[in-house]
Design a protein around this nucleic acid. Structure first.
Lengths: 345, 345
DNA sequence: GGTTAGCACTCGATTCGCTTGAGTGCTAAC
DNA sequence: GTTAGCACTCAAGCGAATCGAGTGCTAACC
């Protein structure tokens, strides 16, 4: 036995209905609400076939059927109608992002809350992540008598600044001179490379050994990951509106997962290159999320870094809606980040 | 009728028990578990009195009594035994903060998660907030051909940096010269004052008008609040472990509240000066939190800024435990921030 | 007078059985 | 191949019965 056109149509109707209502759908519902010109009995036979094929599950014998992960997969792959999103939603998105220039963190926080508000699911936004950034400018800014701020500008943005200790009294001109020398020497290199170059400089500039040592330590500490990325999350509470999470225990494990941002980031980030990803239930690879689906899209900045936006919702998700929202938002962010220069973090 | 010593002891036992179990406590429980040398009948009489005095509520006639907000107030004010916290918890706290230097945001994120892990409630940490910071150094760091990073160091830390557009090609020496002039002129002034001084400078330095205009816009935008403070939250999912929140709808409103960080910050921040605050139920002034309590403590940095750490939990909270944890954590943070120079953010 | 044993009473929670109704699977007729 | 019809299943909803924790009151006791 295999899929034919009619089975397809019936399956689609079942999925549509289930996504809408969240309750198992029966044969009568399909034959009445979606006029197929078939009686419930016929639908019943087809549903029985669809179950055998693995597209439908039956919670118990006298309930309707619910779509399986396999069904959703088929749905997003081929039979989903990619609905045009209503204009007002779209307007909301762009209205929120035109206007004044933003900080990176504000932008992604905001993006997360807009996405979650529009989709009514949980949204996650990861900041742009580049390859090894290359240094462009190094500057030491005096903060107090004995401390200076290290500001490193790279081609992908600034490395999170932090203070280092200054050996003795050093006026701002001296610091500037050292900054120039450092910039000269380190420009175009990655942080890791800088860590190899610095010892040589320390040899040559004995008089500033202490300062440079401090800088070396600073670089060494963050050469691996320029800074722990700021993960923006929005609408975690939305999940509680869905009957799937009326079980408190389930809700709790979900929320705990949302709290461990590192783990969350790695789940969302996925394998990377795909512009659009839909992972359904078990496909997420996360045991806690067997009845969740994750949809992600990417955006990029002028300097070619890629960021990820994602939505987490129940497997019974309004995939087409979510995908079009993510699509719009992805473009919006890409626009925003290529327009201005807000690649700093 | 008024409170006597015995009533006090009974009330304390009731509160202790209720905090522990979360179920209404009956007279028999008290007379058996807490050996008062009194029969349940006597306790019953006393409980009846306590109810009349407004310290106890009775959910329904055949259930035990639960402490009222008034009772908790009395409890934290006078009859709570400030338990020594177990050593391992304390160790956990300090272990997490010794070691390498941290970024401000990392520290407060971390503090929130440690507090929530120790208390099993929801923790909120607000970054240090000073009065009007005074500028110390202004420096423009070239980022690209047509953009520069503005770094403003104030007596309380750095103002969140951001880029402004550069008019034409400007080399780093020119930028440095301008930076020096700006520093000269603006040192010691608040951001708001700077906004009044700048127009004059623009008059005098016509050749850099465009750049200075950009800077002016930059300052103007953040003179009110140097930057939207980063609020760290931990353990929101902990709340779901308490029967108080087994009602999904309740949980949802609580979580939504936790998501609006601005509102949350203003709730936690409170009136400010008190080193220790305990607000019980209605005292929080937030309708959504009538059955929550908020305990806050403060910490301070070397430059005298004050930050707030807080715990939100059910009114039936382990107040003494929470207070001692906040106390320790407050000291820990104060130590950390006065030891190093991590007043930048 | 304070304390306590005893008892009737209340009322939420639990259990049990019954009914209802949505939905299925099968069969026989079209 | 489609459909009407029917027996069957089973979760959910409902109400009565039961249970038990806990109270308030009274009368006896120290």
């Amino acid at each position: 036995m295999e899929m034919d056109d009619r089975k397809m149509k019936i399956l689609q109707a079942i999925i549509d209905d289930y996504i809408l209502t969240g309750v198992p759908v029966g044969s009568r519902t399909i034959s009445k609400k979606y006029d197929m010109g078939l009686s419930s009995a016929t639908i019943r036979n087809e549903m029985s076939d669809l179950e055998e094929l693995g597209y439908l599950d039956q919670p118990h014998v006298s309930a309707g059927r619910i779509p399986s992960a396999k069904a959703y997969r088929l749905y997003v792959d081929s039979l989903m109608k990619t609905g045009r999103i209503r204009d007002d939603s779209l307007e909301t998105v762009s209205r929120h992002f035109t206007g004044r220039v933003h900080q990176m963190e504000d932008v992604i926080d905001h993006a997360a809350s807009v996405i979650s508000a529009l989709t009514r699911y949980t949204a996650v936004v990861l900041p742009p992540k580049g390859k090894q950034p290359r240094m462009q400018t190094v500057q030491l800014v005096p903060v107090s008598r004995d401390a200076a701020l290290v500001v490193i500008v790279t081609d992908t943005g600034i490395v999170r600044d932090s203070t280092i200790r200054l050996p003795g009294d050093m006026d701002s001109d001296t610091l500037y001179a050292i900054s120039r020398a450092l910039t000269e020497e380190l420009r175009g290199h990655t942080l890791a490379e800088a860590c190899e170059i610095l010892p040589g400089m320390i040899q040559r500039m004995r008089e500033n050994e202490e300062l440079l040592q401090g800088l070396y330590g600073f670089l060494n500490e963050r050469k691996e990951s320029p800074s722990r990325p700021h993960v923006a999350i929005g609408g975690t509470s939305n999940m509680l509106s869905y009957p799937e999470y009326s079980d408190v225990e389930k809700a709790r494990t979900f929320l705990s997962l949302m709290e461990t941002r590192d783990k969350l980031a790695s789940i969302i980030a996925g394998d990377g290159e795909m512009a659009f990803t839909v992972r359904i239930g078990p496909e997420t690879g996360v045991p806690e999320m067997v009845d969740c689906s994750i949809v992600t899209a990417t955006y990029s900045t002028r300097s070619g870094q890629q960021g990820t936006i994602g939505v987490i919702g129940p497997t019974r998700m309004q995939y087409s809606r979510v995908m079009s929202i993510l699509n719009i938002m992805g473009h919006q962010l890409t626009d925003l980040f290529s327009r201005g220069d807000e690649t700093n973090e």
